[in-house]
Design a protein around this nucleic acid. Structure first.
Length: 586
RNA sequence: UACCCCGUGGUGUAAUUGGCAACACAGCUGGUUUUGGUCCAGCCAUUCUAGGUUCGAGUCCUAGCGGGGUAGCCA
């Protein structure tokens, strides 16, 4: 048993970290939770660090949970402690086994392994025994008020509450009533067990909070064994205590539950963990509430919990995010009590940074237009194999051979008949480097009757072969391509942000978050891809040169590849182009 | 208009606990580059306000202002 010191204040002034050597670069990076734990260890309040991640199995985990997971498991790892996974399954009307499984998968996918796996429902027997103790000690009573009456009696934020008639029952009467509640003698809602604290407390959580409610519902683990179920406050801290958790880390909205958390542990005189609250994660251009995510799924705004546009872990996984990048993101954003919103570019940047190191480069043309090399006949053979490096930043990634021919697909965007001064790609009368190929000069274009360009005619410069250029020519631009005869088709799903508003959670008058759904959050196209990609398997991540990072989707088949855009490359040209809007022409 | 928490560049987090406001991202300049990617260099702050204590305040004190949370038999 560990009694808490009187001062649980986490204000900076009250912090008392260990005396870190200033030379330790990580010392400055320690967030307030870490500092509090360091201080507790120093003060011998606890002998080790034991944390837990306590999800309710009523939905899929999202990036916000990842912050909590990284915090709890990370702290345990850093400090040589332990971290449990515990399902807070005290409300059988909302919880399902499906979620229990997905949550475990998600935690493991993120790269963490729990020391012990528990369910709050495993503690129902102990919880009940403790409830009888509180009753016997005169610290809890059975209340007859209806839900409606309970609300009325509770008072308001500015007025104190009134005592429930049950408050004057004797312990013996309460014990009898509680046992009959447990035995199923009463209907749902007929009675509750309430802690006897203070109906005038300014903190409403202390106005005789409900401990047990009656619900004749089948529980996903305990079946029909129980018809009374503990409330969060009654179950959570006690579960922490049973597991000898030292630091019970939760989000800010539980801050004024802490006095109740402490009250239960004190009255029971059991191991007393310290609850510490931090600000939950908000990210721009998305929503994080389980209710809203569920609505997006149920009403088919997305294809499911694992839709690549969802901020769920299953969604991010399918989108192609790496666990490393999510962990890096969580470490990057820090932990504090200030309610902030993180710019989604931070997340995008995290995955870009990781993939830049590990994703092999490949060429794919998403919006193909044909480029014909009119002097290719001068070349000795129809096809020439070109060496292309897999990652210019990583020599060990090696290179591959790609076929080059007189008939190529290039990106429609990479050609303009008349181009602005800063356009470094191909234009009529201009030249461009074909990546890992030759420099070509454009002399003409072919158009259909509607005036659309159907073919671009170029000559190649034999002196300019990639890697053995003897021409001395310099061109401003390099573009990607694939050989028509060697390319294969693939479906490419270009995903974008799900919402157009930075904060869909605060809609304008008369609107809802659904009014800000991005109609262009998914655009699908058929791309031409280089031969090397034919062997790509689901989950493989590559960089399509000059475009972005892509992952092979689970829907992909050997004869019908599907790629998801994880994130685009940083696009400086788009910035320049948007600053100098084209005049007149489309 | 009750109680609790929080205010540091555009965004987020630091500041050896009273001693030159730092790091990252974004933005802007420029350089390198066979990806307009990567990489490199530079620029970008009256620490919410007003008083006070002090040789010295982002940090301590007082008052104000602003933001968030709380009235489930949800978690």
């Amino acid at each position: 048993m560990t009694a808490p010191p009187p001062n649980d204040d986490l204000n900076p002034a009250a912090r008392n970290g260990e005396d870190d050597s200033p030379a330790d670069p990580t010392a400055a990076r320690r967030h307030f939770v870490r500092q509090a734990i360091d201080a507790d260890l120093e003060a011998k309040r606890f002998d080790a660090v034991r944390t837990r991640f306590p999800p309710e199995p009523n939905g899929y985990l999202h990036i916000g949970h990842a912050k909590s997971i990284c915090l709890n498991f990370g702290l345990a790892k850093e400090l040589g402690g332990s971290c449990n996974l515990r399902f807070d399954d005290t409300n059988p009307s909302k919880e399902e086994t499906e979620y229990v499984e997905s949550i475990q998968e998600d935690v493991r996918w993120l790269g963490f392994e729990w020391d012990e796996l528990h369910f709050a429902s495993d503690y129902f027997e102990q919880l009940y025994a403790w409830a009888e103790k509180l009753v016997t000690d005169g610290n809890a009573y059975v209340c007859d008020l209806t839900a409606e009456q309970t609300r009325e009696y509770r008072g308001t934020l500015t007025e104190p509450g009134r005592d429930s008639p049950g408050r004057s029952n004797t312990p013996a009467e309460n014990l009898d009533l509680l046992r009959r509640m447990k035995a199923g003698e009463f209907q749902d809602g007929e009675k509750t067990l309430r802690a006897k604290i203070d109906m005038a407390a300014p903190n409403i959580n202390l106005r005789d909070p409900v401990m047990y409610r009656i619900a004749h519902i089948n529980h996903h683990r305990t079946g029909d064994a129980w018809c009374i179920y503990p409330m969060y406050d009654w179950a959570h801290g006690q579960s922490d205590s049973i597991e000898k958790i030292t630091h019970s880390i939760c989000t800010l909205e539980f801050e004024h539950h802490r006095p109740l958390y402490d009250w239960y542990c004190d009255k029971l005189a059991i191991h007393h963990p310290r609850q510490i609250e931090f600000a939950r994660l908000n990210i721009t251009y998305t929503v994080m509430s389980k209710r809203k995510l569920l609505q997006l799924v149920r009403e088919n705004y997305v294809s499911g919990w694992d839709d690549p546009r969802m901020p769920t872990l299953v969604g991010l996984r399918r989108r192609g995010y790496t666990p490393e990048s999510i962990r890096a993101f969580c470490a990057d954003i820090g932990v504090a009590k200030f309610n902030s919103t993180i710019d989604v570019v931070r997340l995008e940047n995290a995955v870009r940074e990781h993939l830049n190191e590990v994703a092999p480069r490949r060429m794919a043309v998403l919006d193909p237009v044909k480029l014909t090399i009119t002097n290719w006949a001068e070349h000795g053979s129809d096809v020439e194999m070109m060496a292309a490096v897999n990652n210019p930043g990583d020599e060990s990634a090696g290179s591959r051979e790609i076929p080059f021919s007189g008939s190529l697909w290039i990106e429609r965007d990479d050609f303009k008949e008349e181009a602005p001064r800063k356009f470094f790609r191909l234009k009529k009368g201009g030249a461009v480097r074909l990546r890992a190929g030759y420099i070509v000069d454009c002399h003409d274009v072919v158009k259909d009757s509607a005036g659309n360009i159907t073919e671009i005619l170029c000559t190649y410069d034999p002196q300019t072969k990639s890697g053995e250029d003897s021409s001395g020519r310099k061109v401003k631009g390099t573009i990607h391509w694939v050989s028509c005869d060697h390319a294969t088709e693939a479906t490419v799903r270009n995903y974008d942000r799900l919402f157009t508003a930075e904060n869909p959670d605060s809609p304008a008058e008369g609107k809802t978050f659904l009014d800000y759904l991005n109609p262009d959050s998914l655009s699908t196209t058929t791309a031409m891809i280089e031969p090397e990609l034919a062997a790509a398997a689901a989950g493989d991540r590559v960089q399509f040169e000059r475009l972005g990072y892509y992952v092979v989707d689970a829907d992909s088949r050997d004869d019908a590849l599907v790629f998801n855009r994880i994130v685009g490359l940083r696009d400086t040209w788009a910035k320049i182009a948007s600053k100098n809007p084209p005049k007149g022409k489309k």
